[in-house]
Design a protein around this nucleic acid. Sequence first.
DNA 1: CAGTGGTCTAGACCACGAC
DNA 2: TCGTGGTCTAGACCACTGT
Lengths: 246, 246
Amino acid sequence: MSDSPKSTIPTRASGAPLYAQVRNTLVGRLVKGVWAPGDALPSEFELAAELGVSQGTVRKALDSLAADNLVVRRQGSGTFVAEHDESRILFQFFRLAPDTGEPTFPESRLVSLRTGPAQPEEARVFSVTEGVDVFRIHRVRSLSGRGVIAERIILLASMFPGLDGAKSPNNLYGLYAHRYGVTVARAHERLKAIGLPEEEALLLDSDPGTPALLIDRVAYGLDGSVVEWRVAHCLTDEFHYATDLK
Amino acid sequence: MSDSPKSTIPTRASGAPLYAQVRNTLVGRLVKGVWAPGDALPSEFELAAELGVSQGTVRKALDSLAADNLVVRRQGSGTFVAEHDESRILFQFFRLAPDTGEPTFPESRLVSLRTGPAQPEEARVFSVTEGVDVFRIHRVRSLSGRGVIAERIILLASMFPGLDGAKSPNNLYGLYAHRYGVTVARAHERLKAIGLPEEEALLLDSDPGTPALLIDRVAYGLDGSVVEWRVAHCLTDEFHYATDLK
DNA sequence: CAGTGGTCTAGACCACGAC
DNA sequence: TCGTGGTCTAGACCACTGT
């Protein structure tokens, strides 16, 4: 029996499934900023034709991006690049809620914004050499009009040039996305209970040693690089950190 | 042109998509215990033939169950009912990890197991009337040989008859599943930082008032009912609560 | 009404696991 | 070698959105 050429279609070039390759291609375009947050992507048929795969394969790639909150799909309308608006932040990246009542987005008050050389621990988190310039933002966030979060944010100056001249908005992830084209895709948090340090106690109008929730968050971009390091001290007498396990 | 009968197949009886109906059917069978944890489900083709839908529709339902960790799919082998073994618990329901080193499953020491009438707050959590019988389990859990978690567990006696005569195993969710056919499918946790109460301080060999992580967990079964209420006090000087946001 | 994503089907081939 | 799930395709129809 002679072997007939079975495949004239672009079969698995590398080891990865086609839909994964399509996904990677699309993520690469998101990283490059080919489409801005809020923009519509080409339709499934257009992408399929351009990439030389079937519509079903493009669909599987887009569904996977939607599952990771990188795009939003709207029936009858199209597929859109996800935006870091307050409602998404509240849903995806802000887990502190009042014990009674609906979650609300906190207001921020800037305490300080300084530039300096990266200390050893900072260099380790960002995988850079010691001494490169970093921004250090210090701010207090309020829920229901009461200051309950004191947080310190570390950023690479090279990733956010000119940031120290900007005002510190309430929604930093929206600023990263719209002004710098840097999208926070996911984050890892480590929580501890500690006694409130003196400096944070002053900012939160509390006594040093008050039990507080320490939240240590490292945020990652679309390409997997570390975008931000954030350490927050939270008072949890009227609030709690909520999470779902499934 | 005459209108020909387009659909001879079992189209959307109700408003829900077919694959969602298939999923609900399969979840119903899991609740009834048609297949036990670890059992293989029928193949996609068999389920498709039995339910009168295509293999692709069954596949979409099974993929959705796998995404919720209710079944495990193994290429070349089959689709199996998920088990509450220690590795799954560690991955899915246990978020406390040592600051340095790999996460490990904690050991448990039973402090007490008593029966009593449900107090108002307990009745509210379980949506039952006050006074129905509940079990109250109190135990201390150790990581790396050190007691770091003191937890109180509330269960409905009607859901776990005879539990008070059983030994309290390390892995309670495995006991619920194998002995009572009750599967914990998901849980909701609320975290706070508090000063360690006197009773927990004694159990954990610490001073009262030490900052501790309070974890309040409500666990839900496959059918959405409340299975367990668990309140834990955790020392986090050498451990942390880890979670991913995405 | 045209265009989009959502659902459903049918059939092919591939990769893996058990026997 | 056979049966399983995994991938990929192709085409039909449905449901929704905007014009």
